[in-house]
Design a protein around this nucleic acid. Structure first.
Ligand code: NAD
Ligand code: NAD
Lengths: 243, 243
DNA sequence: TCGACTTTGTGCATTCGTTCACAAGTGCCT
DNA sequence: AGGCACTTGTGAACGAATGCACAAAGTCGA
């Protein structure tokens, strides 16, 4: 998504704020959550230090991240919680409703459809599709499962923005292709496989098994260390925080 | 987990291969999956280029990543699939069985317990705990749900390596503390909150809501672009692949 | 109004990750 | 045996992300 200013059309001589770094984007939701929690506790101002603690990062990083969005703090005071919530929400595009389609109504599809955490941030599950005729018609969380044959119609009729793949890996690529062909440009993939998509389509994957393997790697290494240097064990191992 | 050689104990003058970079570790599971798939197709040798395509990364990166584990390829030929599978598995610690405890037997806990993808890589769910008395005793995927009161005993008796938190955010920190106190040093957190843990404990989080917000951010930006520069739309937007 | 104190925003150094480009091996064919 | 085509492994260039340190800008109390 690099917005290279040299390829801009002549008419649009807009300065266009230098793109927000990807690493920052990934942290904005975390800040947002901390801010929302603070707002609910009646806090109306937070310093970068406090926000940093709540988000589990350094305060310099909070300031740099937020500086990419604009100058929304007040020196000597901190950030006004409500205002910052608004600004981050706007930046992330949470002021609009996003219509989500889930394909695959198995264990995971069920859990996702039942999950309340979606709606709370403007994500609305508009449909749930499955291949299995036995599941079609089933009712989950106010939705009835539709046949995956109707994928294209559903995308068009409901105006789907984001497709979620919760089906077996061997069906993922083909289904992804159908979503893309139908006009979906954002896909969240739970199947353990790599998806190929044309430029302009964004895929993010959530991979359980990978996460466990990363944990296993570090745990193994740690055990190895402890075995080698029994004295240096537990207490001396340096801090290890996750993504 | 930075193994700084200057803090090594005097007795252990072991060269100790320079730690594998975190970014590489995160890709090893992907390579492993591609290799396993290739092996099942009867392929016995892969070049870095082929492996790169299968893993959705560049071939230079594959080579550099693998070079961190050792010199397991053959110039002019490529990598022997079986041998590389073995080496990566060993590096990730998948040659041993990892015992996993899931806390929270709600929607997500159910889905996880039923998930076959765990066992296939040496991760074994040994127990499933919940607070709700109504759920305790329930049978899921060959396990019966136990009371969370018995957390400490279960960890000790079953020799749990990895704790998975699939419970509400407000119970996550306290439960994590109990796991850590009981000796668990690897935690996978699905609750939407930041966990504080002492040094030497590794937490990784899987955050659905964050992923959707990142997708929303990019989608919003893309739509904005298309609106501004209708001619430059769709086809010109540069490739966007996800981590 | 002033001065002490607090906290932001940012230039700079550093560290980490990716990509490039090529020398050094390896297998195959003649 | 020798040359050719291919592919690895890696130094070096590049770029992104992080952390440090401080000037600039604000608040508050006297
Ligand atoms: N369950 C988990 O906790 C979990 C965890 C991580 C990853 N995953 C992955 O998520 C995916 C789904 O997992 P699950 O446990 O829900 O599996 P599941 O078998 O319970 O459900 C898969 C569903 O997809 C449907 N399906 C199959 N092919 C389809 C197609 N072409 N179009 C539409 N629907 C189709 C099936 O009918 C089934 O209902 C899998 O790829 C799995 O590897 C699951
Ligand atoms: N369902 C999803 O698709 C989904 C997706 C992303 C994140 N999450 C997160 O995962 C977590 C679980 O989600 P869910 O949908 O399974 O919720 P859920 O309400 O269905 O299940 C939560 C379970 O945890 C149990 N519980 C509550 N307090 C507990 C405690 N102190 N100790 C042990 N168990 C306790 C409850 O009895 C319940 O069975 C939540 O934090 C949620 O935000 C869920």
């Amino acid at each position: 998504m690099s917005t290279d200013s040299s390829t801009r059309l002549p008419g649009a001589a807009r300065p266009l704020r230098p793109a927000v770094p990807e690493a920052t984007v990934a942290r904005l939701p975390v800040y947002l959550r901390a801010l929302t929690a603070a707002a609910e506790d009646g806090v109306d101002t937070l310093s970068s230090d406090e926000l940093a603690t709540a988000a589990g990062v350094g305060s310099a990083m909070v300031r740099k991240d937020l500086s990419h969005l604009g100058s929304y703090g007040t020196r000597g005071v901190g950030y006004e919680v409500d205002y910052l919530i608004y600004q981050i929400s706007r930046e992330l595009g949470l002021t609009q409703d996003w219509r989500v389609l889930i394909v695959g109504a198995g264990n995971l599809g069920h859990a996702l459809a039942n999950y309340g955490g979606f709606a709370s941030r403007g994500f609305r599950v508009v449909a749930l599709l499955d291949l299995d005729a036995a599941r079609v018609g089933e009712h989950i969380a106010g939705l009835h499962v539709d046949s995956v044959d109707r994928l294209e119609q559903v995308v068009a009729e409901a105006g789907v923005h984001i497709g979620v793949l919760a089906l077996p890996a061997d069906a993922a690529q083909a289904t992804c292709d159908r979503l893309v062909a139908a006009g979906v440009t954002s896909v969240l993939n739970f199947a353990p496989c790599v998806l190929e998509v044309p430029a302009g389509v964004m895929v993010r994957k959530v991979d359980l098994s990978t996460e466990l393997q990363i944990l296993a790697f570090h745990q193994q290494r740690r055990v190895f260390q402890v075995e080698r240097h029994p004295v240096a064990g537990r207490s001396r191992v340096p801090l290890a925080e996750a993504l």
